[in-house]
Design a protein around this nucleic acid. Sequence first.
DNA 1: AAAGTTCCTGCCATGATTC
DNA 2: GAATCATGGCAGGAACTTT
Length: 908
Amino acid sequence: MKHRNKHMRGDRMGEGTEEADGAKTTRISLSFPLSAGLPSFSAQKHCSSSHPTSSTNVHDRDGSDGTAWMGEAFRDKQLSKTSSKTDRLPCTSSSFPVDLTAPVSKNCKSSLSFSVDGSGSRYPTSPLQHSNKIDYSKETAGVSLNNGYKEHSTTETAHILFNLSARAYQDKGMKDPESSKGKKRKANSLHVELSLPLPSINPHSSSSTPPPSSPSSLSLTSSPLTIPTPSFHDSFRAVPKPELLCGVCHRLFSTASSLTVHMRLHRGGRVLSCRHCSKAFIHNKRLQSHEATCKQGLPAFPVPPKEEPLEEGEVEGERADEAAEPEQLGQGTRPGRPIKKVRDLHARHAGTLTCRDDLGEEDHFVKVVDGHIIYFCSVCERSYMTLSSLKRHSNVHSWRRKYPCHYCDKVFALAEYRTKHEVWHTGERRYQCIFCWEAFPTYYNLKTHQKAFHGINPGLISSEKTANGGYKQKVNALKLYRLLPMRSLKRPYKTYSQPMADGLLSSDSSVTLPLSIDSSLPQPLDTKKLESFLKDLQTTEPERFPIRVGVEQGKKLASPQTDMAVEARETEGSDLWQSGSNNGKSKTPKCPEENVSSVIAFAHSKPSVIMHSAAVSSSVIVHRNKMDSEERKRSPENHLMAKTSQKQIKKHSQRVHTETYRDWDAVSEDTEALKIRQPTEKLHKGRKVHNKTESSKTIPLAVGSEVKGSGPLCQITVRIGEEAIVKRSISETDLRRDKSPTRSKPKKSHLSQEDQREQRHTNHHQRKHRNSNQEGKERESKWKNPKLKGKVRKYFFRQEVREDRNDHDVEDNLWRPYYSYKPKRKALHMQGAKAWKRKLHYKRSLRPMRRAERLMKNLNKEIDGEEADEGEDRRQKVKKERKELSYNQFSKHSILYHQTTMVRRSGF
DNA sequence: AAAGTTCCTGCCATGATTC
DNA sequence: GAATCATGGCAGGAACTTT
Ligand SMILES: [Zn+2]
Ligand SMILES: [Zn+2]
Ligand SMILES: [Zn+2]
């Protein structure tokens, strides 16, 4: 299996040809001039660094949007980045007037950055646009861009890119600044490496230099730092603090804390650990206070970890600790820097006692290998380079925190998983191809698209991975896509003091929003309305909501993005409610309520409406904090909810929840009432959400531009209170109709049968979550499956339910990802030859089990065929049971494996 | 087998907390 | 204010499922 993948990869690589090397090395060059095919970038200002002026301003703005991405790109840590957060921020739009674009917020890490050039374009314009300089803002305004895109065929583009890459590669020598820095990765960076230049690592220069480079074109030549525009950010301007430069690897960091964390990589750890539980601390005081409490409690670890002989270098909890001192661990002394105590080593360990409170239940042990601390999960023995990775991982065993999907019953052990999963519900497309502007929901989709339509060799852009599967940014990795801001902004971190909050997330009502830009909104779209709407928004609060409308082929595409979100964060837990209006973060978007009306604006306090352009990608999301009177009338309950206290709300919601079902049901039948109609089949057919179909059509030319005639114009997601979310595709006509009346409200109706089915499904899930896995998937797949998209999809929030579960034991009823409850197999990535051996061993051991599974599968198929008539439920049930069976086998097997292999493992 | 989805993990940004 | 801690996003390949 994996082979398969490898295969694929291999193929791709092959295609690329230079692939690997090329890839690894750089690419860069892109300057983009690409005129050619690459999107053009417009503008210049940025680059020019110039803008000194604004810098300050920039900050202020939140920048949210858009521009940020650019800034970041440049910023790259390496660059200077000042440490202050603010600095980071980027540029706001204001700063760049032009810019951007995309409203990508800082979050966005988009990469594209092309900034580079001074010449001009920095912003990527969509291919369509081609012309340069496009101000998105203008776009919003309705400007249409042109589509010049066609001029270059995709192949050409690829070609160009390729050439550039090659060139870059040659030049590369210098460039890599990033490389050195490495990681920064993130996003934004332009990755294009282009820029960047820090020639090498210089430490400083780096930082400093941010001089905007001139627009360099291509090359990165720009000064080392490249930060194109100082103006972007003040920060940029600021000279990097020397302290932020890693003395070991010369990497530059934007913040002191980042550097601190980074330094841990270079030094081993020194630890101040608790005598009782061996927990490590950096601060003595903390240790002391901890010990005081630890003595008392000292709970024994509930589940004693397996005892494993200590191997060399291994630190076993207490032993390690006690002995403690870091130095003993070996780590301590890593060349370089000793200095601070290292922290984190918790040598918790296994066998012995541990303090529960601290890390919690997770228990792990540490081994020091070659001066490096490696953290092992005592449950599955996976190894981690960082404690944070281990902690994160530990939740898959402990489920101390649960991250339930806001739209369905699934629960994830990692917030990230949930985030990714929810994309399927929201339809958000954040990965935008810079060549054709088409946006995709997942990275995978994007890559697939680029490979297929633009001939992009993934190898060129990919980063390296660590032995353990971790991400290692490639130095010059090019990012040929833009990562649009998340529709729901990041949720505020929970307060530590209220640890549990997180565990249960509530769905937040908050909102969401945002959208993705797709490039393609169907032309027919009633764009005017949208435009006006957007305009209004913009006008109202331009800064906050940058809306962009892309125009395609002369038409506008709307891809407005409103970042409203800025704050819409999904908060987990109670925070949500608070966030409703203003989230903690200040940025509450203000919505111009008045204007909005036009098309789609439904506003509830929390409720939000999201329009996604279905077919293509553009999407518009309107979110309003307040409900308008109309809305209120219609849904008084919602209104109330908004006001009620959280608790009340929850209770209320629960009650309403059921009602809602009915209501929505009615809606579905009566769709007209809402005006949000269910998309008709044909509409859906027209749009394929995913790339494939769509892309094929669009890409070459104006990508999105073509509107798909009959296709749905957009997809709308409506949240009614916290209770439900309804997604529907709407056609132009629908929009028209929509106008006001419709809103009149859907009153309660009954759920459609399908919905009812779903509901049953849900219940079923609750009863037996594990078995429901499959079911959940089916449901999800419906959504994902283009064919099924036409159907109305409703997602109900079960926040209340979830909470209850969380609080108590109901958790078991939640659906959990398949992976989660299997013992992890890890291993494959382990490091070194030993790892491979182990891996092989593991695989071998798995064979029998897999074989059994396969047999079961086949059996299932047969049965399915035979029992075709039987209810789906029943079939599923059978399947599940079988699966479980197989799972059990697997578990046993795994255990065995561990038992046998642990012994063999020797220090790494 | 291919296509698609989910899991995984090193690294980093960033908010919260503690010193 | 700085250092530390916690959380979560990201890349992109591995692992796994579905077609
Ligand atoms: Zn584990
Ligand atoms: Zn879900
Ligand atoms: Zn494309």
